[in-house]
Amino acid sequence: MSLIALLISGLFVNNFLLSRFLGLCPFFGVSKKTESALGMGIAATFVMVIASAVTYIIQQYILVPFDVVYLQTVMFILVIAGLVQFVELYLRKFQPDLYNMLGIYLPLITTNCAILGLALLNVTKGLNFIESVVHAVGAGGGFTLALMLMSGIRERLELAQVPKAFSGLPIAFITAAIMALAFMGFSGMI
C-alpha cells in the first residue's frame, strides 16, 4: 500500500475512533473541552509514533528471531507503559513547555487501547518500519481530528436543551453515531 493511502486510511477511512472503535475512553471522557481534546490528541499521536517505531523493532529483532511471538501482548504493553514513563521524564526535564501542555494526559495514554491496537495492527498488516510510522501519524491525526470535532459539538451540547434521559453520555453516543455515519462517506476513497 502506498504511503499516502496509508495516511488517508488512518485519517479518514479507517478512523480509529469512528470506525475501528479504538481509544473510546478519552473520546467520551476528555472531549468536553476543545483545549483538553487537542492536548490529548497531540499526546496520543506523539506516543503512537514512538510506540510504533519501538514495537516494530521489538517484533522484528527480538520476538520473531527468538521465536517467542506468544509473548507479544505482555512485551508490547510493558514497552508502551515504560515508553510513556520515559517520554514523560524526558519532557519534564528538557521540554517543560510541552510537558505542561501534555503532562496530565500522558499517564492516561498507557491504558489507551489505541496505542496497543495500533502496534498490533502494524504487525497484523505486515507493515515495514516506514509504513508503520506513517500509519501511526495518520491514525494519530485521525484520532485528534475526531476528538476535536466531538469536543466542539459537546461544548454546544452543554447549552442545548437535551431531554433528561439523554443528557450526558447517551447524547454523546448519538452524536458519535451521526459522526460515524458522516465518516462512512469516506469509505470509497481508497
Binding site: I171, A172, I174, A177, I178, A180, F183
Partner: peptide, 11 residues
Amino acid sequence: LAPGAFLTLGL
C-alpha cells in the same frame, strides 16, 4: 456498521 454501534448503545 459503526454508526449502529454508537446508536444502539446511546439509546
